[in-house]
Each structure stands twice: as structure tokens, then as C-alpha cells.
């Protein structure tokens, strides 16, 4: 029965292949969000295949240019994941991230990049299911929004 189910799921996934597929780039902190993604994997929680992860030691490492660069190069959405406030492995790297991302959100808004294309999420190492939900939500949102445009598409 398990195999049958797998086959069904696979067909459903395949159906999506024909459609346009968004690219979702995620900068995940090593200690919480990346580990949370690993937990989702180890628990075999399927999620949207749109996501590509770049591992960073801490969400505080994320330079806003890394986000703008992704949009400039045609990525459809960017997720930044860090530890919950108070739980940062480096004590307060996520606060630095939070501050910077406040500016990023404002500037993306000014530039006309839809709100759903960028998210900052605190996901702990034990929150595999939250990681799964965030990826799925975001990928669904990107499908709804279609390819990112910076005015030229």
C-alpha cells in the first residue's frame, strides 16, 4: 500500500513539472532553521521542491545584498530562517538579522516586489513541521504570484 501511495504522490508531483516552477532561495541558519529542515527531512515530511537552501552559520550573517542579488538574478522568492529570538546560538545574531530584514522588507516594498516573495521566519531545530508549512505556504504563494518581475517581465 505504501508503494501505491508513493506512486500516486509522485504522479501528482509530476503534474506540477509541466507548469512553471518557482525558485525559492532560503538562507537558513545552521543551528535552528537548517536543523529544522533536516528534521523535516528525517521525518519524511514532504514539501514543495521549489526550495534551494544556502546554509549560513547564523541569520545574522545574511547581508541584504544577498537577498537583492537573488531577486536581481531572477529568483522568485527568498526565505531567511533563524533561531527564535532569545534562542540564537550566538546570543543575538538573529536580532541583527531582524533589524536588517525590517529594512529589506521596506525596500522591497518600495521597489514593487510583492510582500509574499520575502519572508523572515524563526524556525527552531525541533520545528520540522513548521519548516514544511512555511515552505509549502511560500511556494504556493509564489505560484499564485507567478515569476518575479522587477518591472521587466
Amino acid at each position: 500500500m505504501a508503494q501505491q501511495l508513493t506512486a500516486e504522490t509522485a504522479t501528482e508531483e509530476r503534474a506540477e513539472v509541466a507548469e512553471w516552477r518557482p525558485t525559492l532561495l532560503a538562507y537558513l541558519c545552521n543551528w535552528c532553521s537548517y536543523a529544522g529542515a533536516n528534521l523535516a527531512g528525517a521525518s519524511r515530511m514532504p514539501y514543495d521542491a521549489a526550495i534551494r537552501v544556502i546554509r549560513v552559520p547564523c541569520s545574522g550573517r545574511v547581508d541584504p545584498l544577498m537577498i537583492y542579488k537573488a531577486f536581481e538574478r531572477g529568483v522568485d522568492g527568498v526565505l531567511v530562517g533563524g533561531c527564535h529570538l532569545g534562542d540564537c546560538h550566538y546570543s543575538e545574531g538573529n536580532y541583527a538579522c531582524q533589524g536588517r530584514m525590517t529594512l529589506v522588507k521596506a525596500l522591497l516594498k518600495a521597489a514593487g516586489i510583492e510582500e509574499g516573495r520575502f519572508r523572515l521566519e524563526w524556525i527552531s531545530a525541533s520545528e520540522g513541521s513548521i519548516f514544511q508549512a512555511v515552505v509549502n505556504e511560500m511556494a504556493a504563494k509564489l505560484r499564485e504570484l507567478g515569476p518575479a518581475r522587477m518591472g521587466d517581465g
Binding site: 533536516n38 523535516a40 521542491a49
Partner: peptide, 11 residues
């Protein structure tokens, strides 16, 4: 963890 475990479609 971030690919084969969570994506079943081979392609």
C-alpha cells in the same frame, strides 16, 4: 534530508 527524503518525484 533536504532532497531525496522530501521529494519523491525522480525528475
Amino acid at each position: 534530508e533536504q532532497c531525496s527524503y522530501v521529494h519523491k518525484d525522480p525528475e
